Simulated assay, not measured.
Amino acid sequence: MTRLAVGTWGIPRLRYHHYRMTQSSNHAVRELAGRVVAGDVRALARAISLVENDAPEAQPLLSACFPHTGKALRIGITGAPGAGKSTLVDRLAHVWREAGRSVGIAAVDPTSPFTGGAILGDRIRMQGRLGDEGLYIRSMATRGSLGGLARTTADVALLMEASGKDIVLIETVGVGQDEVDIVRLADITIVVLVPGMGDDVQSIKAGIMEIADIFVINKADREGADRVEKEIRAMQSLGQSHEPRVPPIVRTIGTSGVGITELLAVMDETHQWLTKESRLEARRKEYWRLRMEEMVRQALLKEARAHGLSAEDFARHAERVVSVREDPYRLVPRLVADIFSSAPHDRGSAVQEVK
């Protein structure tokens, strides 16, 4: 009888305790999301840290912030290392702030091999902007991600949008040919080139040359700027027959601010072009199609780990595959089938309208 009493009273108490803990967590998430949407800088920093660390609160927090997004203009700035991307970002942010527009900057830096953090930290060049609540700067480490962006860059940009930023600037790490993920996230992609880096255009054309909405030749006071522009125009002439719009070329000198006004004018013109004939909407639809595919992949991997499929298990399977004792083409479908067969879920609950 004593054991029955413990079972009868203990389980409901545990469930009630779990319920109270869940309710408390949900309340904390809603409170934090509300502060982010209200423009609280500290709340935004806290929310981004939760997302970067893949905390349990990250997904419900992003969900709570999502209805407040979609109004900011996302601008991606990419190019080879040393092209002066950070200086251009600083100049653009300064001009927009003077015009009264709020700006969020997600600057993706290489990962420190010692700390795992962003090598360039808090952007020493931009320290003069600290204290301006209309400007938020976040340095992010790639943490091994390829394509020029950190794994959570898209979610960080979403939080900046939700906080009321008019413009979100995403500066990539500057990895070269494979730095093309930015075109999926940004509404407008700017490719920055600089004279004096050898075969300037040819050396990077296999990747990022095809993604530009605008080309910027920075450090245009250097010898070779004319040659870089000629090479860009020569490449553009090869594809003009099927391109709906030829990306304009702007020369700048980031350190002195020369050409920034012209660059802003070209960006406004590009934005206007995108808003016509639903081009911007089409870009964002394609972005979310690809983004949701990636989210499903991440969710499946997380579900696999929750069902006991650890990194050690993958290593064990890899050892067997290498020695041809296991067939990966049969193994992977079996692992996926095991996850779905053992994971209870309601398919209908996944389809919800955002109110």
Rank of each mutant, 00 (worst) to 15 (best):
A234P: 07
V89G: 00
Q202N: 10
R320W: 12
I188C: 03
I119C: 06
A315Y: 11
E223F: 08
M140W: 01
D178S: 15
E312H: 13
R245E: 10
G147M: 02
L88R: 00
R284N: 08
G82A: 09
I137K: 00
P328Y: 13
R297I: 12
S323R: 14
A282K: 14
V103S: 02
V296S: 06
Y19Q: 15
T275P: 04
L274G: 04
Q127E: 10
R291T: 11
Q298A: 11
G131K: 03
R283G: 06
E281L: 15
V192R: 00
D226Y: 05
R143N: 12
I249P: 01
P328I: 15
I137A: 03
L44Y: 02
I170K: 01
Q127T: 13
Y16W: 14
A212W: 02
S341H: 13
G70N: 05
V258Q: 15
R97L: 13
R289L: 13
V354P: 08
S25Q: 11
G10I: 05
S145H: 08
A220H: 01
P248K: 06
I75C: 01
L32Y: 02
Q236T: 07
S342M: 06
F314Y: 13
L309P: 02
K302Q: 14
R125N: 09
R245S: 11
G224Q: 00
W288K: 13
G34R: 06
S145C: 11
Q23T: 14
V173H: 03
N26E: 15
R289F: 14
R347L: 13
R289Y: 15
V258G: 07
R330G: 14
M126S: 04
G176M: 10
M1T: 12
D155H: 06
T152F: 04
T111P: 05
E210C: 08
E98G: 07
P244E: 05
G348R: 10
E57F: 02
R15N: 12
R123W: 06
R245A: 14
F114Q: 12
D346L: 07
V168I: 11
A106T: 03
L301S: 14
I214Q: 03
L185M: 12
V173Y: 03
A80M: 13
A162K: 01
A38M: 09
A315R: 13
V296W: 12
V180S: 04
K165F: 09
V183S: 10
A58Y: 01
I217A: 00
P81F: 07
G128H: 03
A225S: 04
R42M: 15
P67E: 07
E303D: 15
A28V: 05
G176Q: 09
R222M: 08
M209C: 14
S25V: 15
N218H: 05
Q127I: 08
S278D: 12
E210A: 10
V332T: 10
E269T: 09
I182M: 03
L92R: 01
S163C: 07
D226L: 06
